[in-house]
Structures are given as C-alpha cells and as structure tokens.
Nucleic acid binder design. Structure first.
Lengths: 331, 331
DNA sequence: ATGAAAGCGCTAACAC
DNA sequence: GTGTTAGCGCTTTCAT
C-alpha cells in the first residue's frame, strides 16, 4: 500500500482515495458501488473520504472496463434546422416516450443526427433510428455499424429488422371511411409516398375506398409542412380540379390546405372535408378544429426504448405496429 | 510483431488489424485518424484492411485515453411526462439551437433529466442546464459536480455562474407598454414567480407601469399550461374581480385564460387585452391570434452551446441576456 | 516514417 | 472482508 506517486491538482482517482485511507482501490470501488461484501464501517469511511476529497467516478474508464456504456443513441434521420426541427414528422412526444423508458432503465440517451453520428460516433450500446430515410439509406447506414438497433417507421425493410410504428394502413382506411361517411366522392391525397409510412397511409386509403363510388382524383407529393399543403391546394385549384375531400399525411399539411381553400372562398367542412394525421397539438387549436388520425407517439417511444434494450441484453425481440384512432372534430 | 493471442468472435481491435498487417497498432491508430506522418500507401492499406475486418473504433477507450469525451450533457430540470414534456417552458427550438451548434463543433449531446443525471452520470465534458429549478437547487446540484456548465434562465445565481437567457425584464416592460397603449388600466399577471425568469417578467411589468394610472389588480401563480390559465381566470371571475388586461408568463397560459374568458361571455380584445410570452407555434394559429413577447430560442441555444464549449476549452466566458420583441397580433 | 513501452482509471477474477 | 494482478483499447511519449 501507499505506493505510487501523488496526484496534486488533478481530479482525484480511486487510487488517491485508497492511498489516503491505506486500503486497496478495489475496496474503494466496491464501497462506492454498494457491493455487499464491504464492511459497513469501511464503506462509510470510504464514502466520507471520497466526498471530502471531491472524488468523482471516471465514467469513461468504467465504460471501457465493463464494455458497456448504459447509453443509447437516438438518431434523427434529418439534419436539424431552425424552422424544421424534428417537430415534423417526429414530434417531441416520441422523444418523451423514449426518454421515459430509458430513464426508468437507468440508461442515458445521446441525441444526434445521422450525419454527426457517422462522423463522430458516440460511445453507445445501441441505436434508435427515427425514420428510415428515403430508400432506406439511413437504416442501411446504421445497420452497417453492427450495433443493436431499432427503427421507427414502416416495416418495408429487410426481414429481421426490428421496426416499431403505427398501423399506417389502418390509418388510411379509417380516413377513407370517414370521408365516405360524409358523402365525399372526389378525393385528394397529399403526402410524399417516398416516405414508407406515407406510402402505407395511401395504400390503406385506397383499400378503404375500394368497392365504393369514391375515387382519388389526384395525389400530390408534398413535405410535412403547412406551406407544402398550401401550395399543393393552390396548384389543384389553379388547374380547376374538382374535389370534395382531402386526406393529408400530416396535420400541418392539412392546415395549409385549409388555409389555401379559405383564401379561395371554399369552406371546410362545407365544401370540402379534410382529414389530417398525427393529432398534433395544433389540431385542436386550429379553426376549424381538425379531424385527424391519432398516433400514440409516447407509447411508440416507450416500445422503441424497450426493444432496443432487449436487443442489447440479447433477448428475443419482434416488430410491432400500433393501433391508430380517428379523432373526429370539425373538418 | 505478431505477438499476443488472437481474438476470434469478438469485435476486432486495433491490435487485430495491426497483427493482420504486421505493423504496430500505433500505426493503425495514426492511419485511421489521418495523422500526416503515415505514408499514403500504408494508410490506404490499413484503411482497407480495417474496413474488410469490420473494425470499429472503441470510443470509450479513446475517451479514457484522451481524457475527454467530445460530449456535452443537456440537463432538463424537470422530469419528462406524457402530457408535460419539456415543450413548456423550454421548447424544441432551444434544443434545436444547441444541437445545431454542437453538431457544427463535432460534439455529441446527451439529453437527460436532473434526476437521471445525478443517479447515472454520463461520460461528458460539460453541462448545459435548462432551467435553474425553484430556489436554484438544480443549478447547485450541477455546480457540485465540478464540471464546466452554463445555465438557461435568469441571472439570479451566484456571481461567476454563466447564464444565457432572454431579457425578461424588458419583456415585461414592453408587455406593459402594449397594454397601456390600448388604454388598459386594471391588469392581471399570471405566472409562477418562484421561477426566476417569470419573476423578472413581473419586475419588468411593474416597472413599465410605474408612473401610469394602471395598476396590477391581482397576480396568480400558475404553471406553464393552458389548464392553469383557465383555472386562474375562472377563479378571478368567481371572485368578481374587475380587469381589462392580462399579461401571461407563457402563451399556453394566455390561451387558457382566453378560453375561460370566452366561456363567460367576455371577448378578447373587446373586453380584455391579453399578452402572452414566447411566441410559440400555437400563438399564430389560435383564435384570436395571440399578441406575444418573442424569445429567440434558437439563438439562445446556440449561445449556450458556444459558451459551454468555450468553458471546456478554458476560454473566458461571460453571461448574456438576449433582446426580446413584441409580436402584435389580435389579442 | 514507424515502433516499443507506458498508462489513462476502472473492475473482473482469483487469491487469502 | 480485503488485496493482488491483470487488462479493457486506445494514444502519448520517446526512441529509432
């Protein structure tokens, strides 16, 4: 004991605490991590001394030694920007659900974009990817890293990939039912079907219309923003398209569409019925209050976290599609 | 060379790549991190071999050796929950600004709550704390860790602490000016002044009214939610309070207040003028459109990130209060 | 331009 | 109940 040189100035290590007390550093380690084999009096003494000396565990050293980090990366597929953060299409509540569950499991979460992740990989045990990217490129990039990972989105990837998402086809179907029930017959679909989830919404929508007299008179690819919805509807009206119902792939699109209709003197739901997607916070504030297909983001986030932790622990894991629900309001 | 045992099954290390090529592991390290001293042909060969063998850098090992993690913790003062995530009072755009700046500097970000942070400290170089907590307890807890840190909020703490926030007093002042300009004389303040930022808003509000004929007839402590705003106004009306202007510490509170007024047959801005705070996304959707004091969250986030990185690099850093701006709409 | 040795701070495995 | 040894995978330092 008492070997090795001192360590003035720098942050004290376990070796410093051990030397101070004339014990082995492993005893300090055991005392501070509540190992049962340490005598209560020793533990108290070590605790106190560590505290007095301002000792802090070096987490990087522990991570290296234990070969695990208790940290999960949440990777956002798109780059953040001032006006279009991950609010669309993946809202805060999804992140909230993930955090909830990771926190409960004592896991940390590093939030990053796909680009930063590739360039500066953090020290992690697993990955939650939000959004597969167009043509699955984001998911492929993550897969190449060889870490346990799960994806939020649509189950369009290779078999074996674990995907959690809403039942988007059923969402499309219930949107169709709603519009049919309102007697709507000439319908518009607004959304970017390169996006797997949106593609599923359209497929379900078409399936829901099959056998009815209603038809989809046009579909316009548009981003998940109000501006894109506005522009899409303006284009339709400029072309003198006739329609009496819209199914939008997000509430933001729906709001933009309604604004464009109003600007041309068309009323909702008088002239046109509109169904959005997500039941986002703005949906119940907007005027008219938006009818929308609700996804349970928070539960989705919890599932993502649970599943990635199961993968890390080498437990068996399967994909999961969550039920959606129509929230009928005034549009 | 070629000493040491093989390493079948497990993930290859630099030693494995080095053995494969008959070079020293330090050469592999230099090649992969673009050290200039490595011959171009060697570098290419090592690159290729590492790729073929599926080699990945062990970030935890590098962090330990270099004594830095290139990771900053963003600590949310409150626990996340399903309905009240960090949307209020710290919105996504603040996080967006932080991410923007950290990403540009090649830094990772771990997002955590104060509780999880204390219980399972992640491996980090510095901390951004969002919200000081009531009575500064959250900031005190972080300070005790002895790491570089900056805080979003009000500059009420000990000198030397680096704080970035909006000029909340000026925000209160311009809200007062607006209400006075509308001829309002009997005013209500809604907000929890235990919260340092809200306290500043009230102080500025009072200062702005000084010398006028207007008075604050009541102030009600309420949380940053629409429900709290609704309840507060209901209580006022039940007590038959007379008032013609409200300054709410957040837009959510303002919306709740307006709903409660409308439910009792009072109109905004006919009977009562209302000023919110934050200019949150809902403010321009709500009906009536909300007049609100705008904070520049994104710039605030960037400043927080810059300053904490400066601290980590032992550069000199000072606190900063950002200007606010009144957005006049229909309330 | 490349290599050998040392060691970052911690904990698993095995004594005693 | 406590200690000794070894080593996680990498990069710094010093040598060649």
């Amino acid at each position: 004991m008492n070997k090795g040189k001192l360590n003035e100035g720098a942050r004290p290590t376990m070796a410093d605490v051990a030397r101070e007390l004339g014990v082995a550093k492993i005893t300090v380690s055991r005392a501070l991590s509540n190992h049962s084999t340490v005598k209560e009096s020793t533990r108290a003494l070590i605790r106190e001394t560590a505290e007095r000396m301002g000792y802090r565990l070096n987490v990087a050293a522990r991570n290296l030694r234990q070969q695990r980090t208790r940290t999960i990366a949440v990777v956002i597929e798109m780059a953040p920007s001032h006006d279009r953060l991950m609010s669309e299409p993946y809202p805060l509540s999804l992140l909230g659900g993930i955090m909830q569950e990771l926190t409960a499991a004592g896991q940390n979460m590093v939030l990053t974009t796909i680009d930063l992740f590739a360039e500066h990989p953090p020290s992690i045990d697993g990955v939650i990817l939000l959004g597969q990217g167009v043509h699955d490129d984001a998911a492929a990039a993550i897969e190449a890293m060889g870490l346990p990972y799960v994806v939020w989105g649509a189950a369009h990837g290779p078999p074996g990939r674990i995907v959690v998402g809403s039942d988007n086809r059923d969402g499309g179907r219930i949107a169709a039912d709603y519009l049919l029930g309102r007697g709507r017959r000439e319908l518009i679909f607004l959304g970017e079907t390169q996006h797997g989830e949106v593609e599923d919404r359209l497929i379900g929508f078409e399936a829901g219309l099959r056998g009815s007299e209603a038809v989809i008179v046009d579909r316009i690819a548009c981003a998940f923003t109000a501006a894109a919805g506005r522009e899409a509807v303006n284009r339709l009206l400029d072309r003198a398209k006739c329609f009496d119902g819209i199914f939008a792939a997000s509430d933001a699109i729906a709001m933009g569409a309604i604004e464009a209709l109003a600007a041309r003197g068309l009323t909702v739901p008088g002239d046109v019925s509109v169904v959005g997607f997500d039941d986002s916070p703005g949906a119940s504030i907007f005027s008219p209050k938006l009818t929308s297909v609700r996804q349970d983001w928070a539960v989705g986030g919890e599932l993502l976290a649970k599943k990635v932790l199961d993968l890390v622990a080498r437990r068996r894991v399967v994909s999961h599609a969550m039920p959606v629900e129509l929230v009928v309001r005034d549009s």
